[in-house]
């Protein structure tokens, strides 16, 4: 679907802005909101550019920069921290060969941090796109990343 088609699934009402942005971002292979997407959204909803931009930059789930195909969000809440999220992040950085905030050179993964994902009973946790991965340790991380790598090849 084109940007316009995605936007037109929603009524042209201001309160649909966040839902529209989610839909646009999810449909973008780089998992981000393009300038064109923001402009189209603004014009469809009758908003100014800044009102749309201000919203896009406020919420942490939205990105205005191209990201990888899979967004990894590692939980850094107090619980995950107690259960050693730090080592998880370091290990992910090592496995992916990138620092937190970066995107891997094959554009498959972007490594981000997240506030509490509400998975505290199975800490440490992370999300990759829509899926939650719990009770992480070094081994499971490697397996999970490998799984996504394979998945990307089979698509």
């Amino acid at each position: 679907m084109s940007i316009k088609e995605i936007i037109r699934q929603f009524k042209p009402e201001h309160h649909n802005l966040l839902n529209i942005m989610h839909a646009l971002q999810n449909s973008n292979p780089g998992n981000y909101l393009t300038k064109e997407a923001l402009e189209e959204t603004a014009s469809y909803l009758g908003l100014t550019k800044a009102s749309v931009y201000g919203v896009a930059t406020y919420y942490t789930m939205f990105s205005l920069e191209p990201r990888g195909r899979y967004i990894i969000r590692v939980c850094i809440s107090p619980v995950c921290e107690i259960i050693k999220a730090e080592t998880i992040i370091k290990h992910l950085e090592k496995v992916l060969g990138i620092k937190t905030g970066q995107t891997s050179s094959d554009r498959l993964f972007t490594l981000e941090l997240s506030e509490c994902l509400g998975q505290c009973h199975k800490a440490p946790s992370m999300m990759i796109n829509d899926r939650v991965h719990n009770c992480l340790d070094k081994n499971s991380i490697e397996e999970i990343i490998e799984e996504y790598r394979q998945m990307s090849k089979s698509d």
Binding site: E13, H14, H15, N16, L17, L18, N19, M21, H22, L45, S51, G54, V55, Y58, Y59, T60, M61, F62, S114, E115
Partner: peptide, 25 residues
């Protein structure tokens, strides 16, 4: 259904209403 997008503060009821209207939280 309205989706949040990564803001703890939007759990505060008046802030949630702003967000629900499509604004900054």
């Amino acid at each position: 259904i309205k989706l949040g997008a990564g803001s703890y503060l939007c759990g505060e009821e008046l802030t949630m209403l702003e967000s629900l209207e499509g604004k900054r939280g």
